[in-house]
């Protein structure tokens, strides 16, 4: 019954929490009845391969779960861009990305204000609107491409599901990497890359009106490519786990590496102590800009120490999880 349990386990993560147990109980009964019928028809027990084929015919778990949701919202401009299957994932990723961007912007504007820079409400508003537009466009384009792929190849994920079911036998209680987590990381990291590239060439996206006299310090140029490499590696890791969700140990090992690399970058940044500099033409100007520069650098320095604390905790946590995948009771996966 292992393929059945794995199928239901995979599906249950996508179902509405309030009805999850009831739906799984009913589906389990339905599948068991079908397996019994097949057994009677063949006069023998079904092989794992046959069970897997029978389950794969039930379709993509994302679509099966979507049918149970009362929420059938979609995104449509003329034609449907994001259907009800992906819409809940889309909203969650968009909310996460926007919240993070708004937090960063709020910190920067607050630092500029405290540093003595005049911050106009119009500038704040237009900057936030621009971020909404950029994030909305990037996330929507990525999700609409996934939607298009799902519509064109409705069986594709089912095939992946079957392949996952074919993987070596797992111990009980081994968790799998949820598809939601993998998809979210792929989309959020891709948007982060696009956003980084946009900020790099258009500093007003992050500095607002202060972009006319502030520039990123050289340290950012030094760590740009390592940051891009870590993000690309995260996308690759999530893609692999999307195809092989039970590669728990692989995810744990990759997380240790990425968290350690992230920690090293934070260390390099803390050591630098200067994060923004005045633009060439602004250096000759009044001391209030120098004062503002000091405030922004100081705030960034403190924020980096906070980030370092979080990064250390995260790395230790990842390391513990990795050790558990080797020695723990649920040691399994690749």
């Amino acid at each position: 019954m292992e393929p059945l349990e794995r199928y239901l386990n995979n599906l249950s993560k996508l179902l509405p929490a309030a009805q999850r147990d009831d739906i799984i109980r009913e589906l389990r009964e339905d599948i068991q009845s079908e397996l019994e019928d097949k057994r009677e028809e063949l006069g023998r027990a079904l092989s794992e391969q046959e069970q897997t084929e029978l389950l794969s015919r039930r379709g993509n778990p994302l679509k099966v779960a979507a049918a149970y949701r009362q929420d059938h919202r979609t995104l449509a401009f003329g034609r449907q861009w994001i259907g009800p299957v992906l819409f809940p994932f889309y909203i969650r990723v968009l909310t996460f990305n926007l919240s993070l961007t708004f937090f960063i912007l709020a910190v920067i504007f607050a630092a500029l204000y405290i540093g003595g820079q005049t911050v106009h409400l119009g500038d704040v508003f237009s900057n936030f609107l621009l971020q909404i537009f950029l994030q909305f466009t990037a996330v929507t384009v990525i999700f609409s491409l996934i939607e298009r792929h799902l519509t064109k190849h409705p069986g594709h994920w089912t095939t992946q599901q079957v392949r996952a079911l074919h993987l070596p036998r797992l111990e009980k209680n081994v968790r799998e990497v949820s598809r939601f987590e993998s998809i979210s990381i792929i989309v959020a990291s891709t948007v982060a890359l696009i956003w980084m590239q946009a900020v790099w060439s258009h500093l007003f996206l992050i500095f607002g009106p202060a972009a006319s006299f502030l520039r990123l310090a050289p340290i950012w140029h030094q760590i740009y490519w390592p940051m891009v490499a870590i993000i690309l590696a995260s996308i690759l890791r999530a893609t692999i786990n999307l195809i092989y969700p039970n590669w728990i140990r692989f995810r744990a090992a990759a997380r240790v590496l990425f968290d350690a690399a992230g920690l090293a970058l934070v260390y390099v940044l803390i050591s630098a102590q200067h994060y923004v500099v005045l633009a060439g033409e602004a250096t000759a100007q009044a001391s209030n800009k120098e004062h503002m520069l000091q405030v922004v650098n100081q705030w960034t320095y403190y924020a980096l120490w906070a980030a370092a604390a979080v990064a250390v905790a995260q790395t230790v946590g990842s390391l513990i999880r990795f050790v558990r995948t080797i020695h723990g009771p649920s040691a399994a996966g690749i």
Binding site: Q19, I23, E26, L27, E29, D30, R58, V64, A67, Y68
Partner: peptide
Amino acid sequence: QYGYTLRKILADLGMEIEEGTLYPLLR
């Protein structure tokens, strides 16, 4: 009827319905 027999009855009468459609409809 329970879900599985209902699905079989419908299929036998030429009204095939996928589980993914039937159970949410019943709910």
